[in-house]
Nucleic acid binder design. Structure first.
Lengths: 274, 274
DNA sequence: TTAACAGGTCAACGCCGTTGACATAAGGTG
DNA sequence: CACCTTATGTCAACGGCGTTGACCTGTTAA
């Protein structure tokens, strides 16, 4: 749609599986997996078309039969990550606990593949796994009783907070070891030694800073967000218990597991053009 | 320190101001300013060594007399940005309004220079401007009455959330125009058209999604975080008014502008190797 | 059996960051 | 003022990048 030039063939139409010179049979999935492996093993910078071609045993330009450009490939990698994160998540019916669990999963899922998360966490893919995630989270919120407009606002804040912290912490994790060690030491070596007369607040809290700053702030931030959301819900519903089926009609759990599986097993279901 | 190879001359030692072929007299500050202008005027992708050289009227390789590599240049640009963000901020005494203002400033400051923000937001520099920011924010929180441990936890969540959203939104802003347009369209073209029977929650809220997702969720997330913090403070202090000067002693404004200026004019102050 | 064409390959383009070698003018020294 | 050192700007080249037009060849449907 963007480019005038398209040698990409939609996955459904692929029939001829011609092997490359080295005997490998290419596929979109194989390429995505290999890209993930490359990123994990050699860092985000290692993901270049040429190196990916080399790792696959194919000419680099062969990739352009599967993905429009490198950005398109990156989106596919991102969606694969989302899919892996959601694969075995199950809602319990307690919206706050469910969202907390989901947020922590997204966060730790990204940290498990920091290099890939850094590259892809800020993208809107519009692909199958992402759509499933959106549907599920909205279902949890509406099922809890949030009115539609409010549900969307909370959804947006929740998701972007998770993605933003994931990217932040992933970037930190993915730093070259030397830089990483240097940054860790800054809190002890620099902040903890500032004199109380010039920096009284840092000096007074130095002990807490050294202890606290080495961990991710995401759990704290997540709990603060969920707490504020719960307070709003209490206001909105006027103290009513939040367990009852809201506008979503109590189908919130329904959209989770079965659909998620189905989406994962077949070919990409409704998949938009890119 | 990283590289064996260094044609960079420390700023203090510079004496000969030899003009370039086109008559321009280079300096680290001029280069940083020009880099910022380039990013502003022609987008994040416009910042390349070659284009910067062209914009300066100098050979691209001349830049390597001032910065070790492009990363070094970007950190200098980021440092300049922090300085500008804090330069004219003044606390009012209302901790919640102050933190809200500060958060929004950090966020919008990053969005004005997305490329620099993306690359630098997750680093702990230990430099003058950063230290100043830590001291100031901690002062606001302690002045509001938060106990030390709690102040540090809120500080951490607040700062990392601001940085994380800044990086997230900056990354989105820094996308190549084509990709950026494509993402904006995904919500209308894909999500708004999903059938209600397969994706009931998305279908029910499609109108809100299209409207809400084009804006940053940071203001919402920020307000949620501050609201939750206020609730905790109310619990802790047992409903006491938060206006009085707490342990921080209300000196928060004092350390700001003078230090910032001084640090900017000389060579890099204490800077860790990173 | 065969002909079409999907899909792998090749070579080239124009960009990028970076560096070694070189040239020259600035500025201290006498 | 003349001289010399050397800081600093310039040049040319390297290797790597994403991408594309042209080509070639094996698979597959008829």
């Amino acid at each position: 749609m963007t480019s005038t030039n398209d040698r990409v063939v939609p996955p459904a139409a692929r029939r001829r599986r011609r092997p490359t010179k080295t005997g490998v049979v290419l596929s979109g999935e194989l390429i995505v997996e290999t890209a993930l492996r490359l990123i994990e093993e050699h860092g985000a910078d290692a993901l270049t078309v040429r190196r990916l071609g080399l790792a696959l045993g194919a000419d680099p330009s062969a990739l352009y039969r599967y993905f429009r450009d490198t950005d398109d490939l990156l989106l596919a990698v991102a969606d694969e990550l989302i899919g892996r994160t959601l694969r075995d998540w199950r809602p319990t019916g307690d919206w706050r606990a469910d969202l907390r669990d989901l947020g922590l999963r997204m966060h730790s899922g990204s940290l498990a593949h920091p290099q890939a998360a850094v590259l892809s966490s800020y993208r809107v893919t519009g692909r199958a796994h992402e759509i499933q995630a959106v549907e599920t989270i909205l279902g949890v919120l509406r099922g809890a009783g949030f009115p539609d407009a409010e549900a969307v606002r909370i959804y947006h804040a929740f998701v972007d907070q998770a993605l933003a912290f994931a990217a932040l912490d992933a970037a930190s994790t993915a730093l070259p070891p030397a830089a990483r060690a240097a940054e860790a030491g800054v809190w002890r070596a620099t902040y903890a030694r500032l004199p109380a007369d010039s920096h009284p607040n840092i000096a007074a809290t130095a002990r807490h800073l050294v202890h606290d700053m080495r961990r991710s702030a995401y759990p704290t931030a997540l709990d603060l967000l969920l707490g504020a959301a719960a307070a709003r819900l209490a206001e909105t519903t006027g103290g009513e218990r939040a367990a009852g089926p809201g506008p979503g009609g109590g189908h919130a759990p329904g959209t989770g597991p079965a659909d998620g599986r189905a989406a994962g097993s077949g070919p990409r279901p409704p998949g938009p053009s890119h």
